[in-house]
């Protein structure tokens, strides 16, 4: 655990913090029990590869959703996002306060790629259209073979004109990774991207994912419950601990890093 302000000063000046969170809390209450995720301090530098390891239900998804601006923090001391080295940090907490959902959507569209645990593909769009979803919204050109090249890397080029329902689970996850990367976001957030696969396929796809992210120089945050092969990929792990109050009514996870 480190003090956030000291950490900010201590880091080399050429490091740009893509995320800077301080005292961000998300509380969820259901049927007499409450769950709380607390982030006293979190700083992620541009280009970093981050792993968030923990058993399911510990709050990994909650943190990732907040980092993707699809879940509003209950409280936030500071929540800043700086996707461009040359621009000033953006005050995400202020956008939430003003309910500027569309503005958050625009940031997500441009800077964030999100890979879900299972698919999250649009069933009525072909693999090509699914992968081009963000590119089309951003009016990026369709003729530069970027999607085809990415599909080749991911080994799904021959499936480009198929619909997701015709693919295996592993192939769908490759498409999901492709969609998250196709528009060259600043950061990719992946929530247990290989959890639904068998261990051998999971390792293969995870390796491929990290390889691509490395190659494209994209910041990445991966949540996983399996540390074993994540460690081999050289990711920085965020530390967290979960504790339950004596009466069992509140479960709190604290994440720092």
């Amino acid at each position: 655990m480190e003090n956030s302000t000291e950490a900010l000063v201590a880091r080399p000046t050429d490091k740009v913090l893509i995320y800077h969170l301080r005292d961000v809390v998300r509380t969820r209450e259901a049927e007499g029990t409450a769950f709380r995720l607390r982030v006293p301090s979190l700083q992620i530098a541009m280009g970093e590869k981050i792993a968030l390891i923990g058993h399911s239900g510990c709050g990994k998804s909650t943190l990732l959703d907040m980092l993707a601006f699809i879940l509003q923090p209950t409280e936030s001391g500071a929540f800043r996002f700086r996707p461009e080295r040359t621009d000033d940090p953006i005050d995400i907490a202020a956008y939430w306060d003003k309910s500027r959902q569309n503005r958050l959507g625009d940031l997500r569209k441009k800077y964030i790629g999100y890979v879900m645990q299972t698919g999250g593909l649009v069933p009525y769009l072909s693999v090509r259209d699914n992968m081009s979803l963000s590119r089309n919204l951003l009016q990026m050109p369709n003729n530069d073979m970027a999607v085809e090249e990415l599909a080749s890397h991911l080994g799904i080029r021959r499936h480009l004109d198929k619909f997701p329902s015709a693919l295996s689970t592993g192939e769908r996850q490759r498409v999901a990774i492709g969609r998250a990367l196709a528009h060259r976001p600043s950061i990719v957030i992946a929530d247990e991207p290989t959890a639904s696969l068998d261990p051998i396929a999971a390792e293969k796809i995870m390796n491929l994912f990290i390889e691509l992210v490395d190659e494209l120089n994209i910041t990445v945050i991966v949540a996983s419950h399996a540390w074993r092969h994540i460690k081999k990929l050289g990711l920085r792990q965020l530390s967290h601990r979960t504790q339950r109050t004596s009466d069992g009514k509140l479960t709190e996870t604290v994440v720092t890093g």
């Binding site: 569309n102 649009v122 963000s134």
Partner: peptide
């Protein structure tokens, strides 16, 4: 619901 959520996730606006 899920498909619409995915569309919001990739940045479609409320409108």
């Amino acid at each position: 619901r899920r498909e619409l959520s995915v569309l919001r996730l990739v940045g479609f606006h409320t409108g």
